[in-house]
Amino acid sequence: MIEVKNLSKSYGSKKAVDNISFKVNESEILGFLGPNGAGKSTTMNILTGYLSSTQGEARINGIDILSDPIAAKKNIGYLPEHPPLYTDMTVWEYLDFVYSLKKCKLPKKSHLEEICTLVKISDVSHRLIKNLSKGYQQRVGLAQALVGNPSVLILDEPTVGLDPNQIIEIRTLIKKLGKNHTIILSSHILPEVQAVCDRIVVINKGRIAADDSAENLASNLSADHKLSVRIEGPVREVKKILEAIPDMKKVIVVKEMADNITEYSIESKENTDIRKEMFNRLASRKYPILLLKSAELTLEEIFIKLTNAEFYGEELKQ
């Protein structure tokens, strides 16, 4: 369990983290979402005792990281943004070093072998870390965090530098670990935290912009009033039909394709759903809809949505 209360961190006059509070329950995966420089890594560095906070407190399994750092750190496995690898060692030597550094009591050989199998680095365990690819290095970093089987895992952008297959593997692994670990995972990719996390904390400019379950946040942020459609039919007429729909704000022709097919980007008034109406009208004229999807919000749009409207974060909580 992780508890953070009114945590602040200033670098000189600049506030990197500004009075944030949240809680992660046991066996919960919390996603930490924010753009670069939002304060994600700083918060994680405070939680793991690498930095100290200017104000506020952080507790790991009930132990304050500042007043009893050694006891608190025993419960934490940390994968920082740059995996802290001694590149002049082999993978096995490195994990062996981490094992003794963490004063781990589990049977060494079987424990380390188990971790290597879990993160799929067994085949490179006797190679020098500096000769490994970025993806493998990232996984060695993850392996390091798992040594000693800590109950709390703090993972700072764990999928950076991995190829798509590896990303899926690591996400599956994190989900599996989430069954009996408390995990905080940071990312600047919304679909990633949506795929893995039970709860999402959105952080921007050192402040919490939203703290909600993944589903709630997604539905609040969904953009059903912005659609992308592909329709077969003459452009002028289809456009006219679309513009005639009530609540329609804007119809833009994105691309005219072959065989009389055209792609449109349409926007209706917020909180309205024009999909049925659009289907009925087009169907009656025998102009089939070939593709219909809601335009996904980009991360930038999410932050604008969450942070520009100042009270949006509060609204979401309610």
Binding site: Y50, A71, K74, P84, L85, V98, L101
Partner: peptide, 14 residues
């Protein structure tokens, strides 16, 4: 420089 201090400083040792 190599940020390996993030390992040693977050390990349960003084």
């Amino acid at each position: 420089r190599l940020k390996t201090d993030q390992l040693t400083l977050t390990s349960p040792i003084s």
